Amino acid sequence: MLGLAPSDTFAADAAAAGLSDADTRAVFKAAGAVPRKGGWVICTDDPNASDAMIDSVRDLNGDGLPEVVLTEGGTYCYGHAGTGFQLLSKQPGGGWKVMAKDSGIPEFLKTHGANGWPDLSVGGPGFCFPVLRWNGKQYTHHRFEYEGKRCKPPR
């Protein structure tokens, strides 16, 4: 995980993530993050928010453009999961678009939705997790799954 903060090491951190300084700033801004105490914060209501971090940079849908997963910790905004994420995709025009965001830990699965986008399991406490699928416009709930098998969450 890379903490890409607006600091003196910003350029080095951005390069390590495979993003330019401008793209890194654009990712955080597209996610709604604001600079705070040398880092970026998404959950601005949390007075003790941890810095948002770039968790991964890769091309998830095979279009030749990068996707970024941002994560941020804390129970104030993310409840029992203790973490939240945003998936952002670089657009052909150069901007960044939020594709999905939720409380929990994202895991990309081998199954796919429209346009080659991988299904997204949102993990957290428990043993039966929601799986989101890209329908061509947005990630929506598709099923519940645990360790590759369908399940029904307890009520």
Rank of each mutant, 00 (worst) to 15 (best):
G62N: 02
D8K: 03
A33W: 07
A52F: 05
G38C: 13
T71G: 12
L19Q: 02
P47R: 15
R58K: 15
A52Y: 06
N61Y: 00
A15E: 15
K29R: 15
G18D: 01
D8I: 00
G18N: 06
A16N: 06
D23L: 04
S50V: 13
S50A: 09
V27Q: 02
D46L: 05
A16Y: 00
N61F: 03
A22L: 12
A5W: 08
P47C: 10
P47L: 11
I54K: 01
P47T: 06
G64Y: 06
R25S: 14
L60H: 08
C43L: 12
P35A: 11
S50R: 03
E72V: 00
K29Q: 10
N48I: 01
F10R: 15
F10E: 12
L19A: 02
A31G: 09
N61D: 10
A5P: 06
S50Q: 04
A17T: 12
S20H: 11
D21R: 15
T75K: 14
G38T: 13
V69W: 05
G73W: 00
Y76V: 11
G3R: 13
D23Q: 15
L70A: 04
C43F: 07
G64L: 09
G74L: 09
A15D: 12
V57E: 01
A17M: 08
M53N: 07
G74Q: 07
G62A: 01
L70Q: 00
T9N: 15
G74W: 02
M53W: 04
A33N: 10
T44D: 13
A26R: 13
A33P: 07
A11C: 07
G39F: 07
A31P: 08
G74R: 05
K37R: 15
L60A: 09
S20W: 07
S20A: 11
A14S: 10
G3M: 11
A11Y: 06
K29H: 03
E72M: 01
G64D: 08
L65S: 05
S56A: 09
T24S: 15
A31H: 01
P35F: 02
M53C: 08
D46T: 01
Y78C: 00
M53A: 12
D63H: 00
L4K: 09
G64H: 03
F28S: 00
V27G: 05
A5F: 11
S50I: 11
G32K: 07
R36N: 10
Y78V: 01
F28V: 02
A26K: 14
M53G: 05
S7R: 15
M53T: 12
D8L: 13
F28N: 02
G79D: 14
D23K: 12
I42H: 11
A11H: 01
I54F: 06
C43T: 11
G3A: 14
G32T: 03
P66Y: 10
L4F: 08
A22Q: 14
E72W: 03
G32I: 05
S20E: 09
G18P: 04
G74S: 07
S56D: 08
A49W: 03
G3T: 14
N61Q: 09
L70Y: 01
L19R: 01
C43H: 00
A22H: 03
I42L: 15
A5E: 08
D8V: 02
T9D: 15
P35T: 04
D8H: 06
S50K: 00
D59G: 04
A11P: 02
G73E: 09
S7E: 12
A49T: 00
V68I: 05
L70S: 02
D51A: 09
D23N: 15
